[in-house]
Design a protein around this nucleic acid. Structure first.
Length: 480
DNA sequence: ATGTCC
């Protein structure tokens, strides 16, 4: 049972107790359930060496490996610990939105050929590979070092300035390709430009509603137009980096000192950021994050080409432009003001989105006045949202927001409820063109397996952590 | 999330 105290509105505090270094703070849709195991994980994360201010949870929180998904933990950049469980298995899983000049109603009758072409050009599913020829070691080093910039340089991107509109410019500095094992490299060499499975998707959306006209204009979101959404991560390479790092860190845990030995859960395995093992994980994780950016950037090029091919239109007629690309799973060095003093911290965001506020120099110039675009995919049957970061997020959540709807049903429970039904037909009946590799994934990912993302983003908006800008509705969905 | 167990 977790003690909870209401701070205000949808914000709750888990008071510090035992060896917790900081209290927990939970943004929740409705009152949190005291027996939710994810809240126990929020408490566990509060034991992390060097953690600052709060162990945070966003309204899409659910149980994950060690850290909850929807968790945010900032640690001191020098004295703190880095934890693979605080990033997750899919390093730099993230999402991007590409706006187009197409009118949704004009596109609707031609959706099938567009979806079919997207499905042909972007490999999907668990072992998906060969979107582009297998990369040799030198090319893979380029991917691991330069992320989205590698894809732009190699001509795979849709536009030459795409990387500038990714969080961190589509590249984490400090990436260490040498820290990525031969096995991880082997897995990644032919997976650049592939979607994967699970909740990953490519979606064709209609910009359905504008909540904030000024921000929407700055973001280039026009009602009735078509947008493309891509959600994917670092595929087998990132998984392998996480797996090997956990195996390397776990047995050493007690050796790093009493705070490490006393951690309440083995799955919180971590190392001092300054230790050789900590630095090695950090360098490998940054390289895997760059892989994910290259992956989404290559898929962007493939998606744009699929549109041109299927509709037989010119690049100019399509008018594709990357709005923004955000990480959902990452640990990043950032500067944040703590007790009025700027301080270098390492922010773990696991199922959480950076949401920097207006005026921040780290937000691309065209968006700086309104705040960073915060991209929140929902589920494949309902809608997704674009929000903007706020000054309050900078003060209260290390500039972080939610990342999606959050699961309501376990995968097993979703499969049970889908038995005897055709999820594809149900979507088709609602006017959504769906192409999926497997029926099983489709069932696991059906709408009713997820919370209503509208309620999740309403909590963030109501708490002033991010502002609603626009709602997107799916026209066509490609799933692994 | 993941060559969903080297």
């Amino acid at each position: 049972m977790t003690q909870l105290r209401r701070i205000e509105g949808d914000l709750w505090e888990i008071p510090r107790e035992g060896r917790m270094k900081v209290p927990g703070r939970v943004y929740a849709v409705g009152p949190p359930a005291p027996d939710d195991p994810a809240l126990e994980q929020v408490k566990n994360v509060a034991h992390l060496p060097g953690i600052l201010r709060f162990s945070l949870a966003m309204p899409d929180i659910h149980w994950g490996y060690g850290f909850p998904i929807g968790g945010v933990a900032a640690v001191d950049a020098d004295a703190g610990a880095i934890s693979p469980g605080g990033v997750g298995y899919d390093i730099n899983c993230g999402v991007r939105v590409i706006t187009t000049g197409l009118d949704a109603e004009e596109l609707r009758p031609r959706l099938h050929p567009v979806a079919a072409q997207l499905y042909r050009d972007i490999p999907t599913g668990v072992g998906a590979s060969r979107a582009i020829p297998r990369l040799d070691d030198a090319e893979l080093d380029g991917v691991l070092r330069d992320g989205a910039r590698w894809a732009v340089r190699r001509g795979f991107a849709a536009a030459s300035d795409d990387a500038e509109r990714c969080e961190e410019g589509g590249r984490l500095a400090g990436a260490d390709p040498e820290a990525v094992s031969p096995r991880a490299r082997q897995r990644g060499a032919d997976q650049v430009g592939t979607l994967g499975s699970g909740n990953h998707f490519v979606e064709v959306d209609r910009i359905a509603e504008i909540h904030d006209p000024r921000a929407a204009e700055a973001f280039g979101l026009e009602p009735g137009r078509v947008a493309i959404q891509i959600h994917s991560g670092s595929r087998g390479l990132g998984y392998q980096v996480c797996d090997e790092s956990l195996a390397a860190l776990a047995p050493r845990l007690a050796g790093y000192g009493p705070d490490y030995a006393a951690l309440p859960d083995r799955q919180l395995a971590c190392a001092p950021i300054s230790s050789p093992e900590g630095r090695r994980y950090l360098g490998a994780m940054q390289a895997a994050a760059n892989f994910a950016w290259a992956n989404r950037q290559v898929m962007t090029g493939l998606a744009v080409r699929a549109f041109l091919h299927a509709l037989r239109i010119s690049e100019r007629e399509l008018g594709a432009r990357l709005l923004y690309d955000v990480c959902h799973n990452v640990a990043k060095h950032e500067e944040h003001e703590i007790d009025g003093v700027p301080r270098r911290v390492l922010v773990h965001r696991k199922g959480a989105t950076r949401a920097f506020g207006p005026g921040d120099p780290r937000v691309p110039a065209p968006y700086r006045e309104v705040g960073q675009p915060v991209l929140i995919p929902g589920d494949m049957g309902r809608y997704s949202y674009v929000l903007a970061g706020t000054a309050k997020a900078m003060r209260d959540t290390f500039g972080s927001s939610c990342h999606g709807a959050g699961r309501l049903l376990s995968r097993g429970e979703a499969l049970r409820r889908a038995r005897g039904r055709s999820i594809a037909r149900e979507l088709a009946d609602r006017g959504i063109e769906i192409i999926a590799r497997g029926k099983k994934t489709l069932a696991e990912e059906m709408s009713e397996a997820y919370k209503d993302v509208a309620r999740v983003v309403a909590v963030m908006d109501g708490a002033g952590i991010s502002r609603l800008v626009a709602r997107l509705e799916p026209l066509a969905v490609i799933k692994g």
